[in-house]
Design a protein around this nucleic acid. Structure first.
Lengths: 182, 182, 182, 182
DNA sequence: TATGAATGAGCGTTCATTCAT
DNA sequence: TATGAATGAACGCTCATTCAT
């Protein structure tokens, strides 16, 4: 019961903050907006999290786990290595066309965190290293793991290109290069 | 006389703001810091620029022109199309290793501007369209302009990958893919 | 006209803050109370003063000048050195009996400023050094300036004793010792 | 068992709070810091003490008993009345030179307690009345008890003078006056 | 009794912008 | 046109205390 309540507060904050951080950005989201939209009192928020940055970390971890899962699922729809990789890019193509898609959770954050927020940067790097590893794991069976990072660079180019141009073509272009590479 | 002064004020603000926006980010840089470090008084700043966003626009335009120039110069060091393209990536490799390099000016900004700042987003898109066009112009003579956008996606992947991992390898990996593609 | 307004804001803040700092203490007085009772808007206050501590400094300087003046006046009512010194203690006796007297401005502050507020402590020390100097200057003509610090210690004992016991007797006792010493 | 635990909690809180109140001041020490550094959970603290002020009272009483003891010990090192009194000031001279000395426990507090904290002020007065009584008791055998309060004022002047000037000379000066008086 | 969770009020400070001259 | 002064709203965070279990 106690934990339920604590968790409900934490969850509530993380859920609200996640939505706001994602839609508006970290800097453009104030603690006050988080408490208003979550209904959690300010001091309770600061009992659950010591700083705004800690909320950001929770957001990154939550979104990170979901992203890992989604990418793996997309890959595992296929059996052959090349299809798995292409499956990831197919997933991206669908993803970026969703109307509530505002770009990659992690790339959105990385440019607006202050210099001294090394923990945040490290977490994002860690998340992205997971994607590199995913590609490497898929490609190892066909002895093409040395292509993992090249494909990863295309993955990032697809995401940020979509953000800049607000269009699907960067993802499609990246997929096409992957298709040629493998 | 007046115009000189006005222009010197504008330049002064743009120079200072550019440095700060680039090093700290747009949101992490306050108007007060800009006036302190530029020596321009606050109301003069607001005579020269109507909003903070206008200063941002001036920064993007200034940095954009310089970037265009630098990329063209890097390409024009070579004569053959493929070499020109690779020359651009070679330039990136050197660029990201400079100690005062904090990432791509434009990708740094795009994620932290508020939703309603369509002008800013449009400007960044325009800037990046210039890069696509550059690749297309280089590749047209050898009838490979349809690869321009694929190479552009690698260009962006290189930049943002460098930002995330704080390392040169994403740029090198992107260059390698370009080498294979052409 | 401009300066009038600026000064009126500064003066207004200093006056209000002085009263509140003196009556309630520095820590027990919030910026919000200062702005409410002075009528000055919060951001105007922070244009005039960079920090709360700066307001404290202005208070100490203002009160310090007034105190210096009052002590000198009290001393100069007399011509003989001993009478001058006793005059200072007579002034104290009257002072501490005033109904709006809450103790020495400076001793009130010294114990509640944080460790790192060295500027504040230095200012208080400087103020008190002025009192020591006053006694020394009075006593030099009769070649008793070596007693200045002993009398100064009695001066402080009188003030803090009055604060602790909320009574005039510590001042009277100090005066009596001075009478014996000279 | 329960009482042991309760007492250990009380002692723990008092010890931690005493250290913090003394080193940082009452206002500059928050309940949160006390619970963090004592390891006692917040609600247990509020079971043992009803308010922060009650903790302050416990601190004053504890420190008061220790101070009484120390002063008596210092006096009883001697047999003659004058020596006893001078012994107290000798003790002060050593005391204020200790590196973890931050001023008189009681004078440190008196200026920063809110107006309405009459209990606290009364306790401090009571503590200091004990010092006056000590001097009186020492001086009664030699029929000089009428000097007790004059010596007490010097005692306070020594302490607060040391606080202001961060130096031993005020204590030495006070001792010298005592020497002359007796 | 003991406690983990929750509270509302307030902290000092900074934001981008506008006004009066 | 240029400027020093002024603005209201919001910032992230901490306070001493109380509640439900």
């Amino acid at each position: 019961m106690r934990n339920e309540r604590k968790n409900s507060i934490r969850r509530n904050i993380i859920d609200t903050a996640s939505r706001l951080f994602y839609e508006q950005g970290y800097g453009n989201t104030g603690i006050n907006q988080i408490i208003e939209e979550s209904g959690v009192v300010k001091s309770s928020l600061y009992t659950a999290f010591r700083t705004k940055e800690e909320i950001l970390m929770a957001y990154l971890e939550t979104a990170g786990a979901a992203t890992d899962e989604a990418l793996k699922t997309a890959a595992n729809k296929h059996t052959k290595a090349k299809d798995k990789v292409l499956g990831v890019f197919d997933f991206l193509i669908e993803l970026v066309q969703q109307k509530d898609y505002y770009g990659c959770n992690f790339l959105n954050i990385i440019s607006e965190v202050p210099k001294d927020a090394a923990v945040v940067r490290r977490q994002i790097k860690k998340q992205k290293d997971g994607v590199r590893r995913l590609f490497a794991e898929i490609l190892t069976p066909i002895q093409k793991e040395d292509l993992a990072d090249e494909i990863y660079v295309l993955f990032e180019g697809a995401l940020i290109g979509n953000k800049v141009h607000d269009d699907t073509w960067p993802v499609t272009a990246a997929r096409e290069v992957v298709n040629k590479l493998l």
